[in-house]
Design a binder for these strands. Structure first.
Lengths: 189, 189
DNA sequence: ACCTGAACACCGTTCAAGT
DNA sequence: ACCTGAACACCGTTCAAGT
């Protein structure tokens, strides 16, 4: 793209820079604006230059998804298991809302990266502290994930243009916590 | 596409035929194979011919989403509200699994068509029978929707290739019902 | 190994013209 | 009103070539 570089010269790109440019693209142009060509343009390179650092677009998006989950902290080791779960899922929910455009993708392709596994392990650990183990713990984990991501996806939708988005989001956040409470009460037995 | 028709002649297309062709495309080629051009080719018309029957691709997909929900029956009027809800959500869940490729889209853009509204009204009616009304009913409705669609989305994901898909799906169906039970128990109070 | 240039095989959508 | 032909402005990805 930049006419100053001829075929032999390199731009000094790194995988991290590619991911960062992808995040910026997503933030400024939304999901439909996240294209290989846009990311390349932002970096001042030819579109196909990205393929030296990322296998393809799917892999790039997958990294974006897992990286976003890195912002969710581990639960404190001494917390009550129930409040620990409530807190962990609420924080996950908040992090998801920070990247609204990514949310629908979590349920579409799932997150299987290291951060997703770390979070899953954290949930299972808290459940075990509450005496929930084995298959029931797996079921509870799935229900909590589904509810948290699903709710965020619901929240992030355009929605009918009746109320202003701020007020609407505020009402929904309260709902998230309440439904989560229902779920946790049920899991407890 | 068909060389037998020249610019003046018409193919006798209807909106219904376009939607049906889109469903076939989705079934045979998956979501990535659902393109305006593929639908047109299936109907033997030029790609832009579709725009006489559908505003754009987004509208077409929206109709596909709501139409699929038409397969969910209304709950019987005399059922106990709790088992009625359990049944209605389970049927919705089953219908969602019948169109796996559409599932991620329900959370991405939401369903706001007549069938989606009918289902929502059905849920609210059952909740009212259980004494759950007002804002709490809205919260319960949202939790049930989120859980049902979210779970289906989770189920439909490719997943790691460890077990065969049949066995995996069977285990997950049981989990759906259990988490739903937790939720309903919580909603009951 | 990393990058450019050019190309391939696609997309959704629009516009003008024909009946 | 409904359709075709042609085009526009895009996509992701591959391939050959340059250093």
């Amino acid at each position: 793209m930049d006419p100053r570089r001829t075929p032999g010269q390199r731009a000094g790109l790194s995988r991290e820079q590619v991911l960062a440019a992808a995040r910026d693209s997503l933030l400024e142009r939304g999901l439909s604006g996240l294209t290989m060509r846009a990311v390349a343009q932002r970096l001042g390179v030819a579109p196909n230059a990205l393929y030296s650092h990322v296998p393809d677009k799917a892999a790039l998006v997958e990294d974006l998804l897992d990286d976003a989950l890195g912002a969710v902290p581990d639960p404190p080791a001494d917390a009550d298991w129930r409040t620990g779960l409530r807190d962990l899922m609420a924080r996950t929910h908040a992090v998801l809302l920070d990247s609204p455009d990514l949310v629908p993708l979590y349920l579409g392709r799932g997150a299987r990266g290291p951060n997703a596994r770390r979070l899953g392990a954290g949930v299972l650990d808290l459940l075990a502290r509450g005496g929930v183990t084995g298959p029931e713990a797996q079921e509870a984990l799935r229900a909590l994930i589904v509810y948290t991501i699903g709710f965020a996806a619901f929240e992030v939708q355009p929605g009918p243009e009746d109320a202003d988005p701020g007020e609407r989001s505020a009402g929904l956040s309260g709902t998230f916590d309440r439904g989560l409470g229902w779920l946790l009460a049920g899991i407890g037995g």
